[in-house]
Amino acid sequence: MAAVAFHKKDSTPAPSATPMVTLEGVNKWYGQFHVLRDVNLTVKRGERFVICGPSGSGKSTMIRCINRLEEHQKGRITVDGTPLTEDVRNIEAVRREVGMVFQQFNLFPHLTVLQNCTLAPIWVRKMPKKEAEEMAMTYLKRVRIPEQANKFPGQLSGGQQQRVAIARALCMRPKVMLFDEPTSALDPEMVKEVLDVMVELAREGMTMMCVTHEMGFARQVADSVIFMDRGEIVEQAPPAEFFKNPKSERTRAFLGQVLAH
């Protein structure tokens, strides 16, 4: 859909060897429904993963498990060495290091753009207000909306709101960024402005996991593309291989549908 300009991938920094996120035999059920089946995944520092698949395939559930917005019932999830357990301290430690961008933006409507960005640094990181505001402004500049700092989210367009949401997550200086269909709720003409920001972020070496159907984005920045169906990882491969030679029949069928238009 959105035509993102293609760049050579060689210019991006090489991923280092330490794992940032590992999922080992992760299972989850909603009642009787088995949403995640034995998911195994390792994301190294600086790696960029794109996760795709039909709706209901468990891709959002999987990345929501990584910051414990959803609870997995079996298996192990480790983020930067911290295992996700019942322990609230572990959960909060993980959440401090994991930024998340939602499909519906989820900005706080009663706070200005700047307050949205400084809230967590001030209350969680205990950063002085002035310092937090300066940092927020640098991130708002990077997502190209510093002039909107004192507006309320409701006064911005969808694309601008999503860029604020990215800036808000970045203000916690996360080690990993999770994107849960960040462009699905946007009008077509606003998709590009958000993808551009994400591409830039990927180039700077941020570890990223993106659930998205933007295959152009996957080709351009992903180190690895994951196809999920019915709660399991069906295929995982670098984009060139993933798009050229999908091994599984299910992947081929899915790509046929997504890339048809």
Binding site: N67, R68, L69, E92, R95, R96, V98, G99, M100, F102, Q104, N106, L107, F108, L119, A120, W123, V124, R168, A169, M172
Partner: peptide
Amino acid sequence: LPKGQSEAADALALGYWKTQLLI
């Protein structure tokens, strides 16, 4: 309130009381 509000606060590691009081 939409559920997304408290989820966004959770994702920012605000914790229960700060989420309630601030968001």
